[in-house]
Simulated scan of single mutants.
Amino acid sequence: MPDTTPAKKALLEVDDVTIKFGGLTAMDSVSFQIREGEILGLIGPNGAGKTTCFNVMTGVYQATSGEVRLDGVSLAGRRRHKITQLGLARTFQNIRLFKSMTVLENVMVGADAHSKVGFFDALFRLPRHRRTEEEALAKAKGLLDLVGIKARHDELAANLSYGEQRRLEIARAMATGPKLLCLDEPAAGFNPAEKVQLMQLIKKVRDQGYTVLLIEHDMKLVMGVTDRIVVLEFGKKIAEGTPAEIRDNPAVIAAYLGVDEEDAS
Rank of each mutant, 00 (worst) to 15 (best):
V109D: 04
K116P: 03
F190Y: 07
R130N: 09
L213C: 07
G148P: 04
K203I: 02
A136H: 15
G148M: 06
A188S: 13
K150Y: 06
A140R: 08
L168C: 05
R125V: 13
R125S: 15
F120I: 11
A113G: 10
H217L: 10
E185L: 06
A111G: 13
A136Y: 01
F190R: 01
V212I: 11
L183H: 05
H153Y: 07
E216Q: 10
R128T: 15
K179S: 09
G118W: 05
M219Y: 10
K204G: 09
L146A: 04
Y162K: 00
G224T: 01
A136P: 09
A171V: 05
V109S: 07
G209A: 09
L198H: 07
T176P: 11
E134Y: 00
D154Y: 01
Q200E: 15
K179R: 14
M219R: 09
A173T: 11
G142T: 00
L126Y: 02
Q165H: 09
K179A: 08
L180T: 00
S115A: 10
A187G: 00
V109L: 15
P192M: 13
Q165T: 05
K141E: 15
S161R: 10
G163M: 05
M174E: 06
V225L: 04
A187K: 02
V109F: 04
L201Y: 07
L181C: 12
V109Q: 06
T132D: 15
F124M: 13
L168P: 02
I202A: 04
L143G: 01
H217N: 07
R152H: 11
M223S: 06
G142Q: 03
L213Q: 01
Q208D: 10
E185Y: 07
L168W: 04
V225K: 03
F190S: 03
K141R: 12
A187H: 05
F124A: 11
R166L: 08
A187Y: 07
L183W: 04
F119R: 13
R131E: 15
K220Q: 14
D121I: 12
Q165M: 13
C182N: 06
D121S: 11
M219L: 12
C182P: 03
K220R: 15
P192W: 11
K220V: 14
D184K: 10
C182A: 14
K150A: 14
A138D: 04
P178V: 03
I170K: 08
L181S: 08
R172E: 11
Q197N: 12
